[in-house]
Simulated assay, not measured.
Amino acid sequence: MKNIRIGTRDSQLAMWQAEWVKNQLTIVYPHLQFELVPMKTKGDKILDVPLAKIGDKGLFTKELENGLLNHELDMAIHSLKDMPTLLPKGLMICTFCEREEPRDVFLSRNGTRLEELPPGAVIGTSSLRRKAQLKHYRPDLDFMDLRGNLQTRWRKLQESNMDGIVLAAAGVKRLGWEERITQILPEDMMLSAVGQGSIAIEIDEKRLDIMELLLPLNHRATEQAVRAERALMRKLEGGCQVPIGALARVVEEEQIILRGMVASVDGVRLIRAEAQGTDPEAVGFEVADRLIDLGATSILAEIR
C-alpha cells in the first residue's frame, strides 16, 4: 500500500488527535507510511460569529469529507462531537477510538469553583448546550461568546473580564493542561455533547482496505456508548448547536445506560430522561421518545 493520507483540521488539538492516530497505526503497521494532511474548515475560518448563528451542519467536517470523496485522503480524523448524525452519501465512520473523559470542565481565572462565583460572574462559552444548563443551575450568571481554538480561549480568559470558561475535558487533558482545571462538572449540572471525548475516523465506505487497517483502533465500549448518543440526537433531529446533552456508559454484560437532556436557551425549561439496554440505537431512540413525551419537541421548535 502506498503512502496513506490522513486528513485533519490544522488546530493544535486536531493535530494532536491525528498524530495520535498516526502513531497507533505506525505501531501496528511499521512497514507502512502515513502522512498527515492538515486542512482549514469553515468553522475554523469564521471566528467572529457564534456557531449557533452560522447554523451549518458539518462546519468542522465538510472540507475533510470532500477530500475523502475526491480521493485526496484515505481517512479523516474528527472529534466525534463535531460530526453530524447524517453523513454524506458514500462515507462512514469506520472507527471510534477509546474515549477520553467525556465530561466538561470549568477553568476559573483565580481557582474559584463554579458554585462559589459571585452573582453576575461572567462565563465564556459559545455553546448553547453549556449556556442553557448553566443558566438552569445558576440564573444569575452572565455569558460572553467565546470562539477559537483552546489556546485562544485560554488567552481570552487571561485578557478579559471573564471569571471562567467551560471546555471539554478531553481536549484540555490531551493538551496536557490538567493543572488548569478548576473542577470537572458533574453530570447532573452539565451533560456532555453527543460523542464528546471520542476521536472518530471517517472513510469512503468502498475502501475495504482502509477499513481493515483501522480495525485494531476501534474500541467496542466507546462505539456502543456513542452510537446510543448519536441515535438519540438523530431522533431529536438535533445538531451540535442545539441544547441537547447525552452521555452513555457501558456497564457489565454490555448494558448501555444513557442519560439525555434537552433545555430551552434561557435554561428555564430543562428535561432529563434515562434508559438502558444492549442495543445502542434502541436505547438512544427510547431516551429520545421519553424526552419527546416530556416536551422536547416544543423546546427545540422554539430554538429552531
Rank of each mutant, 00 (worst) to 15 (best):
T41I: 02
V287M: 10
L107F: 05
E187G: 09
V251S: 13
E302V: 13
G43T: 08
E101K: 15
V49K: 15
L191E: 03
A228D: 07
L91P: 03
E281I: 14
L73H: 04
P30E: 11
L25P: 01
V105C: 15
E187K: 15
G171D: 05
F143S: 01
A273I: 08
I292D: 01
S160H: 04
A52F: 14
L32Y: 13
L291W: 02
E115S: 11
L208D: 07
L185A: 06
N3T: 12
V251K: 11
S298D: 13
D145H: 14
F285N: 13
L80Y: 04
L217V: 12
A246L: 07
D74E: 12
R99K: 12
I203A: 09
E115L: 09
R272P: 01
R230P: 00
T297V: 10
D145T: 14
Q276N: 13
M144G: 00
D293M: 06
L236D: 02
R290L: 15
A248Y: 12
S126P: 05
I271C: 07
M162D: 04
D209A: 11
K22R: 15
Q196A: 14
P50H: 03
D74W: 02
I257Y: 11
L150G: 00
A263S: 15
L208E: 12
Q255M: 14
L258T: 05
G267S: 10
I46F: 05
V242C: 06
R153K: 15
I123N: 04
R147G: 09
N66V: 09
L87K: 11
V194Y: 01
G58W: 01
I299Q: 02
A168P: 05
R99E: 04
K235G: 00
K62M: 12
R249Q: 14
L91M: 09
G58F: 03
L32D: 02
L291D: 02
M261G: 00
V268M: 06
R207M: 02
K173V: 02
D44N: 14
R103S: 10
L107Y: 02
L236M: 05
K53Q: 15
M211D: 05
A231E: 06
T278P: 00
K156W: 11
M189C: 13
W154T: 05
